[in-house]
């Protein structure tokens, strides 16, 4: 599946350096491995003992709070959209970024379509697997699609309610 990264080369697919490990596959001693949430819970000590970076992939029903003490140990968290219309992972993303303070790569997989990008960016996603035509171009423009937002979220953009209080701020011209 083509992978795109926010801030990556405009419109272009990037390489995926991560090895996605099946739950019954042996864990290589080094290299970047991505494991399921279940495997992380079962083999946490062994995974931390190895040399390479580790990432975790969550189902949208997995309790993201359980990663709390460990978030700084991950370089990648993958959240899944079984269908584009199933929005549970938006909440998981915001909890990871906002509540748990996760700083690494946050990737969306599954039903990932270009019209969701503005919402995903606002919830803290920064990489995307999508085979939709035009996805990369849309990603490059997604940050500028809406110059005004109403909600404070983990992307740190100042919502309109805050801008209105800053009288010195230049108001965008219609």
């Amino acid at each position: 599946m083509p992978l795109f990264r926010e801030g990556g080369p405009a419109g272009l697919v990037v390489d995926d350096p991560w090895l996605r490990l099946a739950d019954d596959a042996a864990v290589p001693a080094d290299g970047m491995v991505l494991v399921s949430f279940g495997r992380w819970r079962a083999a946490r000590a062994a995974l931390l003992a190895r040399r390479g970076p580790v990432g975790v992939a969550l189902a949208n029903t997995d309790p993201v709070e359980a990663l709390g003490p460990d978030v700084s140990r991950f370089d990648l968290v993958v959240l899944h959209f079984p269908k584009f219309s199933d929005g549970r992972a938006y909440s998981q993303a915001r909890l990871l970024r906002g509540r748990l303070g996760y700083q690494g790569e946050l990737r969306a997989t599954g039903g990932v379509l270009q019209d969701q990008i503005p919402f995903m960016l606002r919830c803290g996603f920064d990489s995307f697997e999508s085979d939709q035509k035009g996805f990369g171009e849309a990603l490059a423009k997604a940050r500028t699609l809406f110059s005004v937002v109403y909600q404070p979220t983990e992307d740190g953009r100042a919502p309109a309610s805050v801008l209105r209080q800053r009288v010195t701020e230049v108001v965008p011209v219609r």
Binding site: F84, D86, G87, Y90, Q116, P118, F119, V149, Y150, Q151
Partner: peptide, 13 residues
């Protein structure tokens, strides 16, 4: 109204 408009977390409830 403002808070709910294009709320990024709650558009696919």
């Amino acid at each position: 109204r403002q808070w709910s408009t294009l709320h990024p977390e709650f558009t696919f409830l």
